[in-house]
């Protein structure tokens, strides 16, 4: 084979990946952007057009007198989505530092096993994991029995509360946080801890001034990994939120049944995607800034 042929072979290997992603992602997302500007069809679907009414619908409803009235009901959903996303990320961060720290300082032959234990539930189907919480938190479930055992008063149900939602979401995504944080803490040179103590730092100063700053890249990476799927989640609001806790994912989903508003669903999808893109761009900037700092 000549060198030129080898070179072209190099590029040929990428063609299937580009074709697949182009067909199933790049073109379709472009179409979604187009549909978000289309008119809604009478029985679901849409008619091509160019208007921003679907986006306007996010903020306003058409009043009885054909006037636009400000209506925050979709803003509330967007706000709730962000709030759940941020809360899930924050809880995962807070939990993963002690867990990752303990694993990183465990005996050498225990480490792989503990990491395996963290990842294992992640392999179990998402629907099964959410369903498990449904049983635990449901009527007469383990949560209620435990609550009453410890003398708690009557509860209606633990389901359909923000607590149920957060439990389910944290449970779904926490391995994505523990693993990068563990990787960061594992790399930490024990001599740094010793140096901090040698320079009269106690455990908490060491944690605050040495361990956490050096773990930050892992936490940031984990935050992206958790936040992005968390704001797009569908199962937890549907099963653990019980319709009371509508999020953007469920809102989009309901717009695509028969007779629903496809262009509006597409517009919400674009807003969700924009939120993700903003997070990814901010993250890329942060990574680039760190890379610049590391350079001599």
């Amino acid at each position: 084979m000549t060198r030129a042929a080898l070179k072209s072979f190099r590029l040929w290997g990428l063609v299937p990946a580009w074709a697949l992603m182009g067909l199933t992602l790049i073109i379709p997302v472009a179409i979604v952007a187009g549909v978000s500007l289309a008119d809604r069809g009478p029985y679901g679907g849409f008619n091509w057009a160019l208007n921003v009414s679907s986006y306007r619908e996010i903020l306003f409803t058409m009043g009885w007198t054909d006037e636009l009235e400000f209506d925050p009901k979709y803003l509330v959903i967007i706000g709730r989505t962000l709030a759940y996303g941020l809360a899930t990320t924050a809880i995962c961060m807070a939990l993963s530092v002690p867990v990752a720290y303990v694993i990183a300082n465990a005996r050498e032959n225990w480490k792989p096993f503990l990491v395996y234990l963290v990842t294992l539930p992640f392999w179990v189907s998402m629907i099964v994991r959410v369903y498990a919480w449904l049983i635990i938190l449901g009527n007469e479930g383990l949560a209620e029995k435990t609550w009453k055992f410890f003398g708690g008063g009557d509860v209606d149900t633990f389901l359909f509360t923000p607590g149920a939602m957060l439990t389910g979401m944290v449970y779904s995504y926490i391995p994505l946080m523990v693993l990068p944080v563990y990787a960061a803490i594992e790399k930490l040179d024990p001599a740094l801890l010793e140096a901090s103590h040698d320079l009269y730092g106690n455990r908490w100063t060491t944690l605050r001034r040495v361990i956490l700053p050096l773990t930050w890249p892992g936490l940031a990476a984990g935050a992206i990994l958790v936040f992005v799927p968390a704001i797009g989640t569908v199962l937890e609001p549907m099963l653990l939120g019980g319709g009371k806790q509508m999020m953007m994912g469920t809102l989009i989903q309901t717009q695509f049944g028969g007779g629903r508003n496809w262009p509006f669903g597409a517009a919400i999808a674009m807003v969700l995607m924009a939120m993700v893109v903003i997070v990814l761009v901010l993250n890329a900037r942060r990574a680039a800034a760190i890379a610049r700092e590391m350079e001599p």
């Binding site: 199933t24 379709p28 979604v32 549909v35 992005v228 797009g232 994912g249 999808a269 969700l272």
Partner: peptide, 12 residues
């Protein structure tokens, strides 16, 4: 977000 991808392929 997967829901966006799902919507996109549905429309496609």
């Amino acid at each position: 977000p997967e829901i966006v991808v799902a919507v996109a392929v549905l429309i496609l």
